[in-house]
């Protein structure tokens, strides 16, 4: 079966600094695939190389079997991309800009699809407003519509929900699931890891331009075993006492939150007694199932929003 996206030994440097190093991955048709990593990991550069905004130093990108460099006219039509940065042409209204973008792809007029997009993304009341009068969230929704206007078979969404309110975020993901059921392959990046957990069948994690993990989401989550204990402290800690180091401690929220990993069979009560015996006052306690955020922290040492993990 032909892959929706096949990347082989992709490499890109800017002024001698590698941004993407020897990246190889394959996305199957019909998948919702997550590409995660901290800021500067190389996700957007990879997306830019797939979409043709960025030149490829070495390696290949194939979209549904077509080479991105030698068959660019075909691959451009197969890919729809929503870039992370909001870019609009302030000369035009949403309505005009969508018509222009469809025309760039040579797509004959398809009013029903256009109207469906406008409806699903809640753009109807704003159709005749000029771009510079739109809020950031509206601009982002417009960019999603623009990426889909030519009915791509591979849809790339780079942080599509940043700055979008909760209801619209839910509508957007419902819509993405719907078109995915109709056969559209989706590659997405997001800083909302719970979204990636819920949406993606497989997830790749990049760090410093390299691929450091690529697995089914459930397997990736299984990498972190045991329960997690989140302890809210009455007084912030500067440093985790050495007596707790066997619990893989991480200090968060400026030392106000202590995150610990409990091994199988280890009781939360015993751990709490150890903490209070050290003279640390506990305000609140919560046990957590390990999520993608923990996997992310474990693999990259960073939170997805680029904050450093607090463990000392």
């Amino acid at each position: 079966m032909i892959s929706a996206l096949h990347i082989e030994h992709l490499h890109k440097s800017f002024a001698g600094t590698p941004a993407v190093r020897d990246l190889s991955l394959t996305v199957s048709p019909g998948e919702i695939f997550g590409l995660l990593g901290p800021n500067g990991a190389g996700k957007s550069t990879t997306i830019n190389m797939i979409s043709g905004v960025c030149r490829i130093d070495s390696g290949t990108v194939r979209v549904f079997g077509h080479d991105n460099c030698t068959e660019r006219c075909i691959t451009r039509r197969l890919v729809g991309v929503m870039h992370q940065e909001i870019v609009t042409d302030n000369f035009f209204t949403i309505d005009r800009a969508l018509r222009i973008h469809a025309g760039y792809y040579g797509v004959p007029r398809d009013n029903s699809w256009r109207e469906l997009l406008i409806d699903q993304l809640g753009l109807g009341p704003h159709l005749h407003k000029s771009m510079n009068s739109l809020s950031g969230g509206l601009k982002r929704r417009f960019m999603v519509a623009k990426a889909m206007i030519h009915k791509p078979r591979l849809l790339i969404l780079d942080e599509p929900t940043a700055g979008v309110d909760v209801e619209l975020r839910r509508n957007l993901w419902d819509f993405v699931r719907e078109i995915n059921r109709d056969g559209v392959t989706v590659l997405l990046t997001t800083h909302y890891l719970e979204e990636a957990e819920q949406m993606c069948g497989r997830i790749a994690i990049m760090n410093h331009g390299e691929l450091i993990a690529l697995e089914e989401t459930s397997r990736l989550l299984a990498r972190i075993e045991g329960r997690h204990l989140q302890v809210t402290l009455e007084h912030p800690l500067q440093e985790v006492p050495a007596e707790l180091h066997d619990l893989q401690p991480a200090l968060r929220e400026s030392g106000q939150m202590l995150h610990l990993v409990l091994e199988a069979g280890q009781g939360a009560g015993a751990v709490l007694r150890r903490i209070t015996d050290l003279g640390i006052e506990v305000g609140d306690v919560e046990t957590l199932r390990p999520g993608l955020e923990e996997v992310f922290l474990h693999l990259t040492g960073k939170r997805p929003d680029n904050g450093q993990a607090g463990g000392k």
């Binding site: 000369f91 005009r96 222009i100 025309g103 004959p108 009915k151 078979r153 109709d182 056969g183």
Partner: peptide, 30 residues
């Protein structure tokens, strides 16, 4: 029938005509 289906036909001259039209509209707007 699936409602999401890539168009089978693309109009070869349309990208050029659209960009030309957009550029003309741009200077006419100001």
């Amino acid at each position: 029938m699936k409602r999401f289906r890539q168009p089978e036909k693309f109009v070869a001259w349309l990208p050029f005509a659209t960009l030309l039209q957009k550029e003309v509209r741009r200077f006419l707007r100001v």
